[in-house]
Amino acid sequence: MYTQALNSSDGDDRGVEDVARASQFQARIDADERIEPNDWMPAAYRKTLTRQISQHAHSEIVGMLPEGNWITRAPSLRRKAALLAKVQDECGHGLYLYAAAETLGTSREELVDAMLSGKAKYSSIFNYPTLTWADIGTIGWLVDGAAIMNQIPLCRCSYGPYARAMIRVCKEESFHQRQGFEIMVTLCRGTAEQKAMAQNALDRWWWPVLMMFGPPDQVSQHSDTSTKWKIKRFSNDELRQKFIDATVPQAEFLGLTIPDPGMKQNENGNWVHSPIDWDEFKQVLAGNGPCNRDRLAARRKAHEEGAWVREAAAAYAEKRKSRQLAQAAE
């Protein structure tokens, strides 16, 4: 999902430093207690959450770019205002999540630097381009829809600040999702060109959206401990299935065709998708998606071109402080 890189292991770092405390900690988790910033926690729990929350934050910030690409071209003033407000919400989510990550002891600057250097990951989905206005509808409908599937269980995550952040984020995301679907409804009821635009967007986004849930369960690395710690409550495949089952009737309602001719409903009523091209997923995670370079370049450019502004603000704050001290001394 927004934290896919968690699925790639960086070796076993799960050494437990204090057996007694660790078992107390696990007992609290098992009793569904929330862990708060000042509570003792295993180093690996802290590390996992720092990575997960910061990757989620990076995804929100990088995720501003594909949709931001259409703010200046939104086709009506109502759409323009809604899209600007939506992208602003994503920035707010990013800020909120960085703050939640900071409660685990790593500064926002360090986290952002790790993203800018390419070390930290963000969701693969934002490395795809937004080519038409229908992409804005599709992102709201499917990308936000997928994000909600993943994030609703995170509202019950064992780490308090993350769980609370998710409650607020989910409220806004579900609003975005409805907005996106409404764009799709309008396009599908519009001209033949608009309907074709909607179908084309679905064709391009469908498979990358399914990849958002991460690798299939049998190859996913981190799920066991994350499940034990109640960070993750459903597996990648379970969430992906829920998403597909919820989306199929929506596509039908729109009169759009999901680009998977082999998809079939099984006896339980679940829609079974054809094999996902995991090579594409790996390539995108490795930096070879259509927009990886553009996205990072845009974030770096904003960061570098903003440096003199941030320096000015810091210099001014410093001057003001020394003036106030000098005044107080008089």
Binding site: I61, M64, L65, G68, I71, T72, L77, R78, K80, A81, L84, A85, V87, Q88, C91, G92, G94, L95, Y98, A298, K301, A302, E305, G306, A307, V309, R310
Partner: peptide, 28 residues
């Protein structure tokens, strides 16, 4: 709104979008 996603700091992305939204609302 052209700044959105490209501001010198995230707080400024928020603020510029806020002002942009106010103005769009006035325009409408």
């Amino acid at each position: 709104s052209e700044w959105c996603g490209h501001a010198p700091a995230m707080e400024e992305d928020m603020a510029l979008a806020n002002m942009g939204l106010d103005l769009l609302g006035q325009a409408r």
